[in-house]
């Protein structure tokens, strides 16, 4: 999925107009389909806001944000919901698994929302769980898993519906370095095999090295650097994924 930001400005409302906090200031940026972009910046630099805008969680105050050729700033709430449901996968720093569902159910969640037949859900989840190395943990609940395992479940959930865009917000921020590396390897593997566009926000230089390039975010501005990571050479050509044709598409 191609991402294009055109003169995007975003601010959070304060108690009055003068108190509004400007987070992004006239940002223009393009991330090509199939890229693995890394957003880097200090706390409060605006990288999470940028991720929220790209992830259709929030809408820019001004400017345009296009996912492929769809302008998300003009979509209504239900279209944004459908876009998130079908075309975007999310990986969070704190995993954000649903505590009342077990591993299988957590991973199956996006497919259940799309009302996919149960038999198909079953085979697809089994396949993805095997891929992330948790084939034997399907019936466990999140509180019975380690941090690394929880993040692997989150990754499985993010890819189960084969979204063309995966967003990762500090995916290793809550893990030790060994587990962190394992997760980054997994994300990279997914990128290599399925070619989704990946946008990952991180503080860590080590994590940033897994991406194709780095986008520096500072004081509400972005600066696309060349910063090619050590593993980029492993990048293999392939086709960018398209959303599952059986899933509903955003209007």
């Amino acid at each position: 999925m191609r991402i294009r930001l055109e003169h995007v400005t975003h601010a959070y409302a304060g108690s009055d107009v003068s108190a509004a906090v400007q987070v992004l200031d006239d940002v223009s940026l393009e991330i090509a389909s199939g890229d693995f972009a890394v957003l880097m910046g200090a706390s409060g630099s605006g990288k999470s806001t940028l991720l929220n805008l790209i992830g259709a969680v929030d809408r820019p105050v001004s400017g345009r944000l296009l996912l492929d050729d769809v302008d998300t700033s003009s979509l209504d709430e239900s279209s944004l919901t459908m876009l998130r449901r079908t075309s975007i996968g999310y990986i969070f720093q704190f995993f954000n698994l649903i505590p009342t569902l077990n591993v299988f159910e957590n991973v199956a969640f996006p497919l259940s929302l799309a009302k996919m037949p149960r038999s198909e859900i079953k085979s697809r989840v089994a396949e993805v769980l095997k891929e992330v190395g948790l084939g034997n943990r399907a019936s466990h609940f999140p509180n019975e898993l380690s941090g690394g395992e929880m993040q692997r479940v989150a990754i499985a959930r993010a890819v189960i519906h084969r979204p063309p865009l995966i967003l990762a917000d500090e995916p290793t921020g809550n893990l030790d370095s060994k587990n962190g590396d394992m997760i980054l390897d997994l994300i990279r593997e997914i990128h290599n095999s399925r070619r989704p566009t990946i946008v990952m926000a991180t503080h860590s230089e080590r994590a940033a090295a897994y991406g194709d390039y780095v986008v520096e975010v500072a004081d509400g501005k972005v600066n696309r650097g060349s910063g090619v990571g050590s593993r980029v050479s492993e990048k293999e050509p392939g086709l960018a994924p398209t959303p599952d044709p059986r899933l509903p598409t955003p209007s």
Binding site: G55, T81, R84, R85, Y90, F109, P110, L113, R157
Partner: peptide, 8 residues
Amino acid sequence: LRVLGMSI
């Protein structure tokens, strides 16, 4: 749940 695609 909303981010993961649940509607209002």
